[in-house]
Design a protein around this nucleic acid. Structure first.
Lengths: 189, 189
DNA sequence: CGTGCACTTGATTGAAGTCAAGCGCTGTGG
DNA sequence: CCACAGCGCTTGACTTCAATCAAGTGCACG
């Protein structure tokens, strides 16, 4: 499944010049300082953010006021509030930079228009959505079958950079366990 | 988000005649008796199954030999092993009819070819994938934030037909709780 | 009239949450 | 330059939720 990312990147690099140029015209570079929000709850996600460097986190807040982290995006990841972006409805999620972050911003509307002239972009959109769906499937499977300890272990072995760069409060929230339990899991062994 | 399904259905109905006819040519109707498998683990999912009537269930088997149900598909749902279908790699999942089921089968290869001639089908593919991703997001959120009781309650109020038509063993597996716990949740109140 | 399957009920255990206190940085203001 | 405030994290005591193991019920079907 990770090879699918390579396929997507190849696809982007091999886009014809016309599509590339059109794409360039509707994007811009932007920086967010650590702590800044790329998107807030209730706003409509009218942009996608391709991370060039830094880290962002997506999270929402429960009725009880607890922050639930849904995803971390590192360099080369695309950050959007998927449902808000797709339906153009108010976002349930926040997107926040947890390090100084540089992104390439693409506006929703121009991109949709562009898709009608450059059908390759629909394919691209499809591939990226497929990738996201597979990512979600895998994440769901882990919640469905693994206990707290094994969820942490998988993360620690497969994404060690998560643990190196992200504070444990957020890791715990991302794994759906309490900070205290995470601390205990890490302590033993 | 459910209105997105309506949008997809409208899109299908409003496809130009050419696309419709081409689509018809690569599909066939098929019946599966209760208990039959539409797809088995390790097979490559080379077809998509649009359910006309009946019910199918998607599940995989853990190393420990436990069946984990990932999805139920009813009439008008599309059943595929998503990762296997998308990557054309061996499926981790089984797809099994749990009632006598009638489906419209579309083969993968011809559909991919068709997409190059009828770009509307790429759009359709995109919309369906977007819908699936949003469905996964919601399901993931429930695992992430709700305890067993509230997961059951949401299911019972939002999809009462699930409980009417599907045996509790499968419901429990779908909700990620043991059959005994589900029984107790249902007993009280 | 059993045999098997779907489900229930009870007893016990274990995993993880909550509450509470404390530790060790870092950074800031007196 | 020290003091202490705040944050990220740890540790301990206790509670709660849900899994497991084990019987038992009731129905369906051969």
């Amino acid at each position: 499944m990770n090879s699918y990312l390579t396929k997507i990147n190849n696809f982007i690099e091999n886009l014809d010049a016309g599509t590339q140029i059109a794409l360039d015209k509707i994007t811009e570079r932007k920086r967010f300082a650590k702590g800044e929000f790329l998107l807030r709850q209730d706003e409509i996600c009218r942009q996608s953010f391709f991370i060039e460097s830094g880290i962002v986190r997506k999270f929402y807040v429960t009725e009880a006021g607890k922050e639930i982290t849904t995803e971390f995006c590192f360099a080369d990841d695309l950050a959007v509030s998927f449902q808000s972006y797709t339906l153009q409805t108010p976002s349930l999620e926040f997107i926040q930079a947890i390090e100084n972050t540089q992104v390439i911003v693409t506006d929703y509307e121009p991109f949709q228009t562009l898709k009608t002239n450059f059908p390759k972009l629909i394919e691209l959109d499809l591939m990226m959505t497929e990738y996201y769906a597979m990512w979600l499937e895998e994440r769901l499977q882990r919640f469905h079958t693994l206990d707290a300890t094994r969820r942490y272990q998988k993360l620690a072995t497969e994404q060690p950079h998560f643990i190196r760069h992200i504070q444990l409060t957020h890791i715990a929230s991302y794994l759906g366990i309490s900070l205290e339990t995470l601390s205990r899991i890490r302590a033993k062994k």
